[in-house]
Amino acid sequence: MSTFHPDLARGRFIPNVSVGRLSSRIVRSRKIRPTDPGTGVTVQELVVPGPKDAPSVSLRVFQPTGLKAAAPALLWIHGGGTIMGAPELDDRTNIAFARELGITVAAVRYRLAPDHPAPAAVEDAYAALRGLAERAGDLHIDIDRIAIGGASAGGGIAAALALLAHDRAEIRPVFQLLLYPMLDDRTTTRTDLDTLKVRLWTPKSNRYAWSSYLGDAVAGPEVSPYAAAARREDLTGLPPAWIGVGTLDLFHDEDVEYARRLSDSGVPCDLDVVPGAFHAFDLVFPKAEVSREFWRRQARALEGALWADRK
């Protein structure tokens, strides 16, 4: 594997610890401080009906202040291996999307594994998507221009949500923005990986997360594509995608492979491989130039998909 990106050289000193039952529980119990969006963007916590026989779903909604006309929206799904995390994790980038692109960003607070294994997370995300469409009127959302996106496990859930939305054919998201998505549970059984320089998400964490989400089915023959999107054979008809991943990411191979399969199935897909970048590098070093550029590329991809008429 390659060496660390020069902007991320400090990442060398991040200890390669893994998460397990206890540590993920501790992380879960910590509340992440919300970021004040300042002026220009307003935030509110909306509650929408949940999936069938499940509790309602909460959305953290950022909107440009004084939004009056229908504008596009992004449904955002946070990361954390399906076992940790909260929408507040990505406040900074979500606020920036809302401010710079003039769109509504709704980050879903989905149920976490192992207390709520698959398909709880993706069903919650679907309920969130439907909730946004139902409240499109008072939120000023153009339902024909809703993108979905997420990072890490959230990227995986977003990819699965794209499949679910395609199959149910009720609401059609127009774009999927996938940041180093967690797509394939079969990566847990790979033994050929050189993971010395992998940071933040180790094979051990990956095994614990996938088995929390899928239970005993992990890496077996019976895994639903709505839980691990890479399991899907037929990728035709999906919305265009942007996939970004670093070369030092455990998910590098599965993400590159998914991008290739999307392209082969006729789905327009931009693949952005960042040399020497590890998992979630943009969260750990948000001020590094490579992280800023990573965000700008996402913003450009979203702008192209959602504001095609502006160009």
Binding site: R33, D36, T42, Q44, E45, R60
Partner: peptide
């Protein structure tokens, strides 16, 4: 409340 809760203050 939805607004205040969203801002965390």
């Amino acid at each position: 409340l939805p607004h205040m809760r969203g801002r965390g203050r």
